[in-house]
Computed example of a mutant assay.
Amino acid sequence: MNAPTTSSRGRQHDVPVVELRNVEKEFETTRSVLDRLLDDPKPAKAVCGVSLSVLRGETVGIVGESGCGKSTLAKLVTGQLTPNRGTVLLDGDPVGGYTTRTDGQLRRVGVVFQNVRKSFDSRWSIQRSLAESFGHEQHSDATVDHVEDLLAQVRLDPQVGERYPSELSGGQLQRIGIARALAHDPDLVVLDEPVSGLDVATQAAILDLLADLQRRHEVGYLFISHDLDVVRYLADRLAVMYAGELVERGPALAVFDRPSHPYTEALLRAIPSDDPADPPPEPLLGSPPVPSNRPTGCPLHPRCSYADEQCERHHPGFERVRDVRSRCHYAGEISDGSRANDRRRGGER
């Protein structure tokens, strides 16, 4: 048997940096008088039985509409939330939330927040914010050198350290957010909508920076976005999320090239094309289910143009289609184009 490979950090390549095993997260909902009488709280199921892993040096993209559970999943990985069921592992060791993780485990995972400007204290200089993130005295020579090195890594002038968040553009502040995430030399960075709200040129620059930093530091990324074009640029593997479930997962190129789940197909149809000869984008009609009132069977069936009685009655398991796993009764037929599609344009049933 071959010995497991080990990185320069002394960690094994074949052990996922982070792994989720059948993770579920529920939230209590506001209970009506009838619910209280019936003792039926109907919790909101934000994440439902998700299994996923991220290896060192790879990018796993999580895509889906707003409210599908992407950000909740990110908080389970970082320890901001703990699962109701299932297990989160770092390097094969089960972990809980922030308060139960060791200092070493906390340093393993960096985070770039969705609203990066709100994640900084407006009263603190950039140098103080970065110094605070690695716990050094903010005016020591070692700390100043460390801050300047982080700024250089994200392609910013060292003098930016003397400025305040209000003096920086969105793109500059996002670079600072990335620098802060790298301050502890983590093995995984969770990126929650890291380029949302930035113009196209700035998005491209940030994505190029992330790719360069990943090559240099061999860091893994869990990249969460609703924008498939953004994820296409960076992701090695793709996981598509709907109503708290992963519905399709596999190598990113394979999923983009031949989707085998109707939801993935619909997300791709909704992307505007640069070619004016292509058909116009076709948004998916209807709305995702309310987490506390999920439909029976496949949760997508009220919006799905392929759905039939089997979809309404039976919740599908994962079916393997080439290198991809898809949670659809007709995954193979959708992938090869043989499934009849009447594409109802009237919205939900």
Rank of each mutant, 00 (worst) to 15 (best):
G69E: 00
T202W: 01
G96N: 05
I62A: 13
G49P: 00
F120D: 11
A142T: 14
R215I: 01
C48R: 15
L156M: 15
G347A: 00
E24D: 13
G170H: 03
D257P: 07
P289A: 07
T99Q: 11
I206R: 12
R155L: 00
V88T: 11
R9Y: 08
E162Q: 14
V290R: 13
L38T: 08
H261Y: 04
G220P: 04
R56I: 12
R320I: 14
A3G: 00
V147G: 02
M1A: 14
P186Q: 12
R123N: 00
G49A: 03
R349E: 13
S273L: 02
G171E: 10
V17N: 06
H301Q: 07
N293H: 06
L300T: 11
I271C: 09
V23M: 09
E312G: 05
G286L: 01
C68S: 15
A205H: 09
V324Y: 10
R322T: 12
S51Q: 09
D199W: 02
R232L: 00
R237G: 06
G347K: 10
A46I: 05
L156K: 12
L89S: 14
E132Q: 15
P43V: 13
Q105N: 08
D14E: 15
T102M: 03
K118R: 15
C311W: 01
T202C: 08
V290M: 11
V95L: 04
Q174P: 03
T100D: 14
V17T: 07
R237V: 03
V33F: 15
L150V: 09
Y242T: 08
R128V: 04
L81D: 09
S32R: 12
S260K: 10
R108Q: 15
L55Y: 01
S335Y: 02
R349L: 13
R11I: 05
H136I: 07
F223D: 08
S273H: 00
R85L: 14
P288S: 04
V240D: 07
H301L: 04
P295R: 13
R21C: 04
R31E: 15
K25S: 01
G135Q: 11
S8F: 04
R258W: 07
N115E: 15
D149T: 13
L90W: 11
P272K: 10
Y221F: 12
A239P: 08
K70L: 08
L151Y: 03
V324W: 04
E26R: 15
E245Y: 09
I271D: 12
L188C: 02
L267S: 08
H261N: 14
L267I: 09
L81G: 01
P276E: 11
V160M: 08
V109I: 15
D192N: 04
L55Q: 09
T202A: 10
A201T: 06
I206T: 08
R215A: 09
V147F: 05
D39I: 03
V154Y: 07
T102H: 11
G170I: 06
D257Y: 00
V189G: 03
I176W: 05
T29W: 01
G96S: 07
W124V: 02
H139R: 15
L90A: 08
R11V: 10
N293I: 01
